[in-house]
Design a protein around this nucleic acid. Structure first.
Length: 312
RNA sequence: GGUCUCGUGGCCGAGUGGCUAGGCAGCGGUCUGCAAAAUCGUCCACAGCGGUUCGACUCCGCUUGAGACCU
């Protein structure tokens, strides 16, 4: 029937229940799940990233969970390449890709035409700039950008060191300025997208977050992080910047006690959930489902499935 | 029963007779160069009632609440 291939997207804030619903949706549509989660993609970070359980991983085929070594640098650019590879692969098997996750930029990289490949990164050069920032402050690095590419410096906040460095990198190595991106997003032409947004009443969502953080700690979050540190990861690793990781590491370094760390993890997770919702609200063609409004999961699920059927 | 201290927004916390700190939380945004990041905006107040005053959150009195001490 459908001449254009369809990719299902299941998005929502952390702790809303995406994992469960994505699995059910995948099962209902002969789908395979492609995670769009910047932390669950890392191996060994099982507890802190609230990864799907072993059982859940067998209930539907998952991709881009547990695929990257946390000692590696990873980013949207690589994410986009890998995810698209899986999308093609799943289409070829005659199945439906179900992209599930809450990392907004990762979603964008699959929803819109975005080209991250213009410039390869220069690891050494970056290191140098990072050190520069450490010694002289991020302002100093930003000033350098100002002279190289005033427009980019205008756009990028000095504290956003990564972006500042990237812009300098581009300017220095290509002699060109950062490309001004189009004002409007162009939807990808590679496939059709059906967007499902999951949410809950705010109070309930926050309650679930608090509960989940307590569970993660009980499940051994601290031990998980201790062993990650033994593997050579540090608070500077990208993967260790995740909520739940950075706070516990600070605790292990003696900055505050465990209770305080837990409080911060909860608070930061709530903030994150809020930012995710802000991000996701921008998708005009998203079909929202407030899970708090359904008496049972079955009800919610069948409403979602009906909606997907009507959209394809 | 008496004496004293205090009572600021959801929480913490400054402060002044007129120009309404700030922080946290909450709420709302931005975000195509690496995003669980970075960033911006914003609501909410001076315990209550009287009085003094051109004007009171700030001064006075009473009421009420909290705490400390005394008997």
């Amino acid at each position: 029937m459908q001449d254009k291939k369809t990719v299902l997207f299941v998005a929502g804030p952390t702790a809303v229940g995406k994992t469960k619903y994505a699995i059910e949706i995948a099962r209902a549509f002969q789908g395979e799940i492609i995670s769009a989660d910047s932390m669950q993609i890392y191996r060994y970070m099982d507890i802190g990233s609230a990864k799907p359980s072993k059982e859940e991983l067998t209930q539907a085929k998952h991709h881009l969970v547990d695929e990257i070594d946390p000692r590696e640098e990873f980013s949207v650019a690589e994410y986009q390449i890998l995810a698209k590879k899986y999308i093609d692969q799943i289409f070829q098997e005659g199945k439906i890709p179900v992209v599930a996750g809450g990392t907004g930029l990762y979603l964008n990289s699959l929803l819109y035409e975005m080209d991250f490949s213009i410039m390869p990164k220069q690891a050494d050069f970056r290191k140098q700039l990072e050190q520069d920032a450490e010694q002289h402050g991020s302002r100093h690095v930003h000033d350098r950008l100002k002279s190289l590419d005033p427009a980019a410096a205008e756009r990028i906040h000095p504290n956003n060191l990564k972006k500042v460095i990237r812009a300098i990198e581009v300017a220095e190595t290509t002699g060109e300025r950062m490309r001004e991106f189009r004002e409007s997003f162009i939807p990808t032409k590679e496939y059709a997208c059906v967007l499902i947004g999951l949410t809950r009443d705010r109070e309930e969502l926050y309650r679930r977050i608090d509960q989940r953080v307590d569970q993660l700690v009980k499940a051994g979050l601290v031990q998980e992080i201790e062993s990650l540190l033994k593997m050579g990861l540090t608070e500077n690793s990208i993967s260790m910047k995740g909520i739940g990781y950075k706070e516990i590491i600070a605790h292990l370094h003696g900055e505050y006690d465990l209770n305080e760390a837990v409080r911060l993890v909860k608070r930061n997770t709530r903030h994150y959930a809020k930012r995710q919702l802000t991000w996701l609200r921008r998708y005009a063609d998203m079909s929202w489902f407030n899970l708090s409004e359904y008496p049972t999961e079955e009800n919610a699920l069948s409403a979602i499935i009906d909606r997907i059927r009507s959209k394809r």
